[in-house]
Design a protein around this nucleic acid. Structure first.
Lengths: 103, 103
DNA sequence: TATATAAGAAACCAATTGGTTGCGCAATGA
DNA sequence: TCATTGCGCAACCAATTGGTTTCTTATATA
């Protein structure tokens, strides 16, 4: 079982779940009503998200609330950093070019 | 065949390929020497990356150079934006709390 | 207490994935 | 011209994935 954050966000249903619980923690049943897959399928997605620490749980009685661990998302942001430098450099080069053309 | 950018970066080999060609375009053979999979496997990864416009090709004679399409990476950055707002809000709340404590 | 509800666990299945080998074609160069 | 090189394509295979259904446990409630 590969369990890394990039593999976790590869599935569109899982990405939608993350967005859905981003603002408010929700139970598997509540989440499942918004998708056309079974509650069990949603539970499996939640399990995968939990295994790579993208979500955390909070049990209240017999209900289990899943909430986003937004800090974990920074790992993707961090990986993007190296490419962000490249695209920013390209803009810098474009700036330089435009400045030279002005002269 | 699901061909979206999130599925494309889910594979660690593909992520490594993207990093490798980020600074300089390279041929499939050149790339494959840095991985312990066959040239054909690398070619398949490149094909997937190409199908979702993360890489572009440039043929010179019988060699085909693959280069990163860094602009496409911004789509991931854009998706992250909604979560970035959340983690920044949390910092803002922390700032507010600290300011109140100072008073 | 008996019943209904929430949710995880397990067994199963079809489709997809990541890898291989083998092939053919075009460009290079002795 | 003919052997070599670079590369894409197709066929094949084992492992993984995303889904289902069924079952069990634990909590809430009439």
């Amino acid at each position: 079982m590969r369990r890394d954050i990039f593999q976790a966000i590869a599935d569109p249903t899982r990405r939608a779940i993350l967005v859905r619980i981003a603002t408010q923690a929700q139970t598997p049943n509540a989440i499942a009503t918004h998708f056309d897959v079974s509650r069990q399928a949603v539970s499996k997605h939640l399990k995968i998200l939990q295994e790579c620490d993208l979500v955390a749980t909070n049990q209240e009685g017999r209900e289990i609330y899943y909430k986003l661990e937004v800090e974990k998302m920074k790992e993707i942001d961090h990986w993007l950093e190296q490419f962000r430098q490249i695209w920013q450099n390209r803009y810098n080069e474009l700036d330089n070019l435009l400045n030279q053309l002005k002269k």
